[in-house]
């Protein structure tokens, strides 16, 4: 569904992301894990066309590496950005409305209903200004706004940052739900435990380089990953 070929990002002399190759299939959840500054956000932003990137990017077999963000969204790519970035002075409804691009316009009412069912807390707060929502509610709104464009691929950047464990679980459930609908999910997370728990495939980034990739369950067992990101030795070692 989404495939990047030798995707690189640099903001100056130092590359933030170096020749990354990865692909996400429909109904697949790929976790992108790595420490602060590993290049996760740079990767997602470059995929959206928000920062200049080098290399190829294909969506559904079509090359979109030269497309504007606008046409990438029209083509079926959506991002829930790190830090949520909802429109603070607009209501929940208006935020959702803004996410609804021309391609999805005809299904606007169904989509809103779907989002309010998916996020019951937003239904209760339809008229409330987004800036006055709690962190968890804002995160749900950011994801809902991205889903309003009916994406084929959704990029989630740190959706659990700063959220209580119970909300983290809800977001994991939501990601499973997206997978069942056949949406491709690329999840950038520092919370490796959550990310590896929910993902099918995982990619480990270190200073802009892909150092490990494979089935999420196997990566979760990898001793170096466990000590670096999960704060525990692997089960085999401790056994």
């Amino acid at each position: 569904m989404l495939k990047c070929i030798d995707l690189s990002v640099s903001y100056g002399p130092v590359p933030a992301l170096a020749r990354l190759n990865l692909s996400v299939a429909a109904g697949e959840v790929v976790a992108l894990v790595g420490a602060n500054g590993a290049g996760k956000s740079s990767c997602l932003k470059a995929m959206m066309g928000l920062v200049p990137g080098k290399g190829g990017l294909e969506l559904d077999g079509k090359d979109i590496s030269a497309a504007t963000t606008r046409s990438r969204v029209e083509a079926g790519l959506a991002l829930s950005p790190e830090g949520r970035h909802v429109f603070p002075e607009m209501s929940v409804m208006e935020n959702l409305e803004l996410g609804c691009i021309p391609r999805a316009r005809a299904r606007y009412h169904d989509l809103v209903e779907e989002m309010l069912t998916l996020f019951p807390r937003l239904r209760e707060r339809q008229k409330q200004a987004a800036g006055s929502l709690s962190g968890g509610e804002q995160q749900m709104l950011a994801i809902g706004r991205a889903l309003m464009s009916e994406p084929k691929v959704i990029l989630l950047d740190e959706p659990t940052l700063g959220l209580a464990p119970i909300i983290v679980d809800q977001i994991a459930d939501l990601i499973n739900d997206l997978r069942e609908r056949g949406i491709a999910v690329l999840l950038a997370e520092q919370n490796a435990e959550m990310a590896l728990g929910v993902a099918d495939t995982a990619c480990v980034l270190e200073t802009g380089m892909l150092v490990k990739t494979g089935a999420a369950r196997e990566i979760a067992q990898d001793s170096s990953v466990r000590s670096a990101y999960l704060g525990a030795p692997s089960e085999e070692e401790s056994a």
Partner: peptide, 20 residues
Amino acid sequence: GRQLRAVAQSDYASRVIGLD
């Protein structure tokens, strides 16, 4: 008008959702 207010509130968020 809604798009104009969106850009006024956040340039970055407006780009993220694909506004011109």
